[in-house]
């Protein structure tokens, strides 16, 4: 097997794509259901735990250089107890992969092509992810790099184009129901950001781990910023009450874009989520496969 080496930026980019996309698709509705018009406060409250997890992952990988999560868990906790913990992580990876791929399938069947059976999307995506995993981590990282570079301009464009529909008075009054719902909304965001822990399977292949901690904390801050736009946007456009009843509010905001004769830019949304979900599923599939290989 030839030596795999990716740069730390590539590794963190994998984290960014995988978190952003399922986050926008599946978690923003949940946050809004909990916290309503104060969702942005929930988001800001999640900054500290997000940075904490980013720091933890980076520090662990730096301390046990060249060892993945599977290996250093066993070093820290001893062989059997370590294996148990790894098994919990593995179960989580598995769970996350299934949720995100199902989310994509549901997105397609409910919003894009309702008549196609969901299995088609799931299997096609998994075939693709499997192919990418077989090609190796370097290929995954490079593909993701292209994807992320395409996604960011689309995202910025989308939030700029929806600007005219936004009514920021929808955010008033602030903290109407005190902090209760805001805390409820914070927990899903924290859990979402925690899934960057999957990078602990990738960091051993990073060629230069200097300043990894700083880079990963910056990554978390970028991630927070990438969520500010959609979370506030949805509430600003639809108002808290309407937004709470929507399944894919971020997708619907894209639907409402109008530039001259071009009316519905759904295809951008579809592109965004398909590419992102692909990255995420690939990353988790890779992590699972690698973890199982290292565990037994």
């Amino acid at each position: 097997m030839e030596k795999i080496s990716i740069t730390k930026i590539q590794a963190l980019m994998l984290g960014i794509t995988s978190i952003t996309v399922t986050g926008h698709l599946l978690f923003i509705p949940v946050i809004i259901v909990h916290a309503g018009r104060d969702s942005w406060i929930s988001l800001l409250l999640a900054t500290i735990p997000a940075m904490l997890i980013g720091f933890t992952v980076a520090l662990l990988s730096q301390r046990y250089q060249g060892y993945s999560m599977v290996e250093y868990s066993q070093i820290i906790l001893g062989k059997w107890f370590g294996k148990l913990v790894v098994f919990i992580f593995l179960f989580y990876f598995f769970h996350e992969a299934t949720i995100s791929i199902r989310g994509l399938g549901e997105f397609y069947t409910s919003a894009v092509t309702p008549r196609t059976p969901i299995m088609v999307f799931l299997i096609a995506m998994l075939v693709l992810a499997g192919y990418a995993v077989r090609c190796g981590l370097e290929v995954i990282a490079r593909t993701n790099q292209v994807i992320l570079v395409t996604l960011i301009p689309i995202g910025i464009l989308a939030s700029a184009l929806t600007h005219k529909d936004k009514d920021y008075r929808n955010f008033l009054p602030i903290l109407e129901d005190s902090f209760g719902p805001v805390w409820d909304g914070t927990l899903p965001i924290i859990s979402l950001y925690s899934s960057i822990f999957v990078l602990s399977m990738i960091f051993p292949f990073v060629n230069d781990t200097k300043q990894l901690k700083r880079y990963s904390i910056i990554t978390m801050i970028i991630l927070i910023m990438m969520f500010v736009g959609p979370v506030t946007g949805v509430v600003a456009i639809y108002g808290a009450e309407r937004a709470q009843g929507l399944y894919f509010p971020t997708f619907l905001t894209l639907r409402d874009i109008e530039i001259g004769a071009l009316q519905r830019l759904d295809i951008l949304g579809i592109l965004l989520w398909s590419l992102g979900s692909f990255s995420k599923v690939t990353l988790f599939l890779y992590a699972i496969v690698l973890a199982i290989a290292q565990l037994f």
Binding site: V112, T116, M125, L128, Y131, T143, I147, L275
Partner: peptide, 16 residues
Amino acid sequence: VLGAFGLIFGLLFLLV
């Protein structure tokens, strides 16, 4: 066969 998903699937495959 699959509409936009098919196209995106094909392009992703190509990219990988």
